[in-house]
């Protein structure tokens, strides 16, 4: 047990559902942690990204912070994995792409039902929104994709175990779905 595979994960414009699905591999997590070492991840709350073997990205690219984090993950990861519908095609957040960003902000913060103290947030600490939400492959090179909203725990398990064993990854029919 000299060398464990180093894995980092992050959620960009996602809902953390894919991370919940990762936890859904249940007791197999115990087996997983004998094989991999988790670096930066919302699961352990480590904030600094060190070089890793596998970087797993949930969520699409919706703001400037997402771009920065995604590029950092690409730089530091030997293998970059897009996990879930949002990372692959923008997902539900990309439904705002049919509208102008201005329209979206006005609907949310000025004209929406039940808005009190209407104003569009502009604190300098809030990352600027991009005009459109993008799948991550439009920003960086992606090595593997795991579709699903979210991919099931079984899909993630199949992927990780076959990747770690260096086999071509083959999913049973029931483990690939787009929703």
């Amino acid at each position: 047990m000299s060398h464990k595979i180093r894995v980092a994960t992050t959620s960009l414009a996602g809902c953390f559902g894919c991370h919940m699905s990762l936890l859904d591999i249940d007791e197999r997590l115990l087996e997983l942690i004998t094989l991999v070492e988790f670096e930066r991840s919302p699961i352990n709350d480590i904030k600094q990204l060190e070089p890793v073997d596998v970087g797993i990205i949930e969520g699409g690219v919706a703001n400037t912070d997402n771009v920065e984090v995604l590029r950092e993950f690409r730089r530091q990861s030997k293998i970059l994995v897009a996990i879930g519908a949002c990372a692959i095609n923008g997902g539900i957040p990309a439904m705002r792409n049919h509208f102008e960003l201005k329209e979206c902000l006005e609907e949310s913060y000025l004209d929406g039902i039940g808005v009190v103290n209407p104003m569009i947030p502009n604190d300098p600490e809030i990352p600027l929104l991009l005009n459109k939400v993008h799948p991550i492959h439009e920003v960086v090179k992606v090595d593997y994709v795991l579709p699903g909203c979210p991919p099931s725990g079984d899909t993630i398990w199949t992927f990780l175990t076959e990747l770690l064993e260096g086999r071509p990854i083959h999913f049973p029919y029931s483990e690939i779905h787009y929703d």
Partner: peptide
């Protein structure tokens, strides 16, 4: 705009099913 998670036809959509059949993982 094929946002499968937000589509009522998902799961009985032929476009989706054929894409599964040919092994399409991403667009």
């Amino acid at each position: 705009n094929h946002q499968c998670p937000g589509c009522e036809k998902s799961g009985r959509c032929q476009l989706q099913a054929v894409a599964y059949y040919v092994g399409m993982l991403s667009p």
